[in-house]
């Protein structure tokens, strides 16, 4: 069974798509079969990797035209990583798309269909705590909360946690919180430093790994690549995501998540 991780934040611009994309790449590069699912009606993953938001078919075609999932799922050049893009959704139909996701079992059915193929499904959700985000949480096994190291984001964290708790208690008992991931951290700036100081000292569940704010994310965005795929020496930011993938795998394992049978290996001979 796949571990389905929704990346959720009530506030916009917290780096959900960046986290989802680079985490999916790090998991895939560590050998785990991973699906990156773009649930954002604006198609943020598509914008991050493609030239425009009509390049790829995806969820919209599957839901509206009943296109088979294996036809709209994108196999990347990283053998362990597939992407299910949003598809060529007309922006005028976003409310219909949201209604379908909220009122039907479409998302649960999609996840059930691909569940056996992947160890991790990373779900990139839209900003806010609206119907799509709630549908994602209702269909996920885990949630990861990016916390932008700035005051508004810290003040808003209770909202996300409140919704998470509500869904866990009323809709999806299998939903577990992985933790809060601090992103866009600038320890040299007083405000960012104070946020991190407050989060580290006051909040239980802040992950050990944090993601700094650096220009390399802009560069990667400009080139339409995950940071690990940029030319040159492996940047420390890519290392951060490798560490994040390891930390998340450990947490999921401790929470009783399915780590597959890959850990069981036959006896081998050294000489």
């Amino acid at each position: 069974m796949a571990n389905t991780i929704s990346i959720v934040s009530s506030k916009g611009g917290t780096g959900k798509t960046t986290v989802a994309l680079n985490l999916a790449v790090a998991l895939a590069e560590s050998g785990e079969r991973t699906l990156l699912l773009d649930l954002d009606p604006l198609g943020a993953i598509g914008f991050s990797l493609a030239r425009n938001d009509t390049d790829w078919r995806g969820l919209a075609e599957h839901i509206v035209d009943e296109a088979p999932l294996n036809e709209v799922m994108l196999q990347t050049r990283l053998p362990q990583l597939s992407i299910l893009p949003r598809g060529r959704l007309d922006p005028l139909d976003i409310d219909i798309y949201e209604n379908v996701l909220r009122c039907s079992d479409a998302l649960q059915n999609i996840i059930a269909e691909v569940d056996a193929e992947f160890r991790y499904i990373i779900v990139d959700t839209p900003s806010g705590l609206g119907s799509v985000t709630r549908a994602a949480l209702a269909s996920s096994t885990h949630a990861l909360l990016p916390l932008q190291a700035e005051p508004l984001a810290l003040r808003a964290i209770s909202q996300t946690l409140h919704v998470l708790q509500h869904i866990r208690e009323n809709e999806n008992r299998k939903l577990h919180l992985i933790g809060i991931l601090a992103v866009m951290v600038q320890l040299r700036k007083d405000v960012s430093f104070n946020i991190m100081s407050t989060a580290w000292s006051s909040l239980h569940g802040v992950l050990e790994t944090y993601i700094p704010r650096t220009d390399i994310f802009h560069l990667a965005s400009e080139k339409g690549l995950p940071v690990a795929f940029l030319q040159g020496r492996c940047p420390p930011e890519a290392k951060r995501f490798e560490m994040l993938a390891t930390e998340i795998k450990t947490i999921i394992q401790n929470l009783g998540g399915d780590m597959g049978a890959d850990d069981e290996r036959p006896q081998r001979e050294l000489i």
């Binding site: 708790q165 933790g179 809060i180 909040l203």
Partner: peptide, 24 residues
């Protein structure tokens, strides 16, 4: 000189929720 003012975050509810949900 560094700012010594106390910040304005009330995280008691977040703490309460995290204590119930975050992995221990």
């Amino acid at each position: 000189m560094k700012d010594r003012n106390v910040n304005s975050y009330n995280l008691s509810y977040a703490r309460q929720l995290l204590d119930a949900m975050a992995p221990t």
